[in-house]
């Protein structure tokens, strides 16, 4: 690797790869491959980009969009549409991880990607607007609309009940 130190690359990967993979999974067929490809391209850079996190998200998004145009990925999207992968390892005490993933997957893509980039990716709204290619108010509006929709679904959702130990 010519430019970027392996320790820096490893630290960035451990720190951001889970959220980045969650972001990649918002597109059909997206997942580990896109995240790894993004970090491989980062390793090929001579120097670290000024804003490495938005850079990584942009690479993942471009890869996902390019892959989504291929027929092969479209077939995979149809196969996975009804069964999202394990997006979360831990949810909260009122919902389990699979149900959380299903709820998030039920949102529109333009809302989902803003929410994921903001909540789990930690990007600012300006960075999200540049990433998505929309204006700052639009990015903020999509975020609020997605949260509102998710809140409605969460409020009407089945909540986990505490299981009493069998006696």
């Amino acid at each position: 690797m010519p430019g970027i130190d392996a320790d820096v690359l490893g630290r960035l990967y451990r720190q951001h790869a889970p959220a980045l993979r969650l972001y990649a999974r918002q597109w059909p067929g997206g997942g580990d491959d896109f995240v790894q490809e993004a970090f491989v391209r980062l390793a090929g850079q001579k120097t670290l980009p000024d804003q490495v996190l938005p850079w990584l998200y942009r690479v993942v998004r471009n890869l996902a969009l390019a892959a989504g145009r291929s027929a092969n990925r479209r077939r995979r999207r149809e196969a996975r549409a009804s069964a999202p992968e394990a997006w979360f390892s831990v949810a909260d005490d009122r919902i389990d991880a699979d149900e959380a993933a299903r709820l998030l997957a039920g949102l529109a893509l333009e809302w989902r990607e803003v929410i994921v980039a903001r909540v789990w990716g930690g990007l600012t709204f300006e960075e999200i607007a540049r990433l998505v290619g929309c204006s700052l108010p639009t990015a903020h509006r999509r975020y609020q609309a997605g949260l509102a929709e998710l809140g409605e679904r969460l409020s009407g959702q089945w909540t986990r009940t505490l299981r009493l130990p069998a006696t």
Binding site: L9, A43, A97
Partner: peptide
């Protein structure tokens, strides 16, 4: 808000993400 607070508790899965695999791929690419 409450929804955001709940969402921040959800932790993205890190299963299958291996640094060694990344390093191998990066070295091969270089």
């Amino acid at each position: 808000n409450d929804v955001e607070r709940r969402l921040t508790e959800w932790q993205p899965s890190a299963i299958g993400l291996e640094v060694d695999r990344l390093m191998f791929a990066a070295g091969r690419a270089s």
